[in-house]
Amino acid sequence: MSAAWHILRDGEGVTLCRHLPPRFDVAAHTTLKAGHPIRLAHQIRQDMWRALQKVRGFSPVVELRPTEAGWAVTAGGRISGTASARDVRRIHDTLANPENRTRWMRHAGGTG
């Protein structure tokens, strides 16, 4: 498998994706405190992949936009076929998981 990930920068925002253009067929949102955006995006992508790797044609996309408190995160990606409510729930659960969030922030040099 190729290690080629596209990192798109838009001002201070960052989008991490495998395929261009990035596309959200399925997505969930959260906010995180400040931390290194590329490291955060990769950590989120890895955990999202673990949660959705059996979904046919899933390709993760993570977008981080700066806020006063840190980052507004949109996580999801492409899916071949139709995205289900279960897929959205898996992404939401991944983003809301306190252990994931703590690990992401620790890896990204953030404060939690």
Rank of each mutant, 00 (worst) to 15 (best):
S2Y: 05
A3R: 08
A3H: 04
A3K: 07
A4Y: 02
A4V: 07
A4Q: 01
W5Y: 14
W5T: 07
I7C: 14
I7A: 13
R9P: 10
D10P: 11
G11Q: 09
G11Y: 09
E12N: 06
E12W: 00
G13C: 15
T15F: 04
T15R: 02
L16G: 13
C17K: 05
C17M: 06
R18E: 03
R18K: 14
R18C: 01
R18P: 06
R18W: 04
H19V: 10
H19T: 11
L20P: 13
P21E: 03
P21I: 11
R23Y: 02
R23I: 10
D25G: 13
D25E: 10
V26Q: 09
A28I: 10
A28F: 14
H29G: 03
H29R: 08
H29W: 11
H29C: 10
T31W: 02
K33H: 04
G35T: 08
G35W: 02
G35D: 01
P37R: 06
P37D: 10
I38S: 04
I38W: 01
R39E: 00
R39P: 05
R39G: 06
A41L: 13
I44L: 12
I44F: 07
I44K: 04
I44E: 03
I44H: 02
I44Y: 03
R45Y: 09
R45C: 11
D47Q: 09
D47A: 07
M48K: 04
M48Y: 02
R50S: 14
R50K: 07
Q53I: 03
Q53C: 08
Q53D: 08
Q53R: 14
K54H: 14
V55D: 10
R56V: 15
G57N: 11
G57E: 12
F58P: 03
P60Y: 04
P60D: 09
P60L: 06
P60W: 06
V62Q: 02
V62K: 03
V62N: 05
E63A: 15
E63F: 01
L64H: 09
R65V: 15
P66E: 12
T67G: 10
E68V: 08
E68H: 09
E68M: 01
E68N: 13
W71Y: 11
W71R: 11
A72Q: 13
A72W: 11
V73Q: 04
V73W: 01
V73A: 07
T74H: 07
T74R: 15
T74W: 06
G76M: 03
G76T: 03
G77C: 08
R78N: 11
R78G: 00
R78M: 12
R78V: 06
I79E: 07
I79C: 11
G81W: 01
G81N: 07
S84H: 03
S84F: 04
R86H: 13
D87A: 15
D87R: 01
D87T: 06
V88H: 10
R90C: 07
R90A: 14
I91F: 06
H92L: 07
D93C: 03
D93M: 07
T94L: 05
L95N: 00
L95Q: 01
A96G: 04
A96T: 12
A96E: 15
N97W: 05
P98A: 10
N100E: 04
N100Q: 14
R101H: 00
T102P: 00
T102W: 00
M105W: 00
M105A: 11
R106Q: 15
R106L: 08
R106M: 09
R106D: 03
R106V: 02
H107F: 09
H107E: 00
H107Q: 12
A108Y: 01
G109M: 02
G109E: 00
T111L: 01
T111P: 00
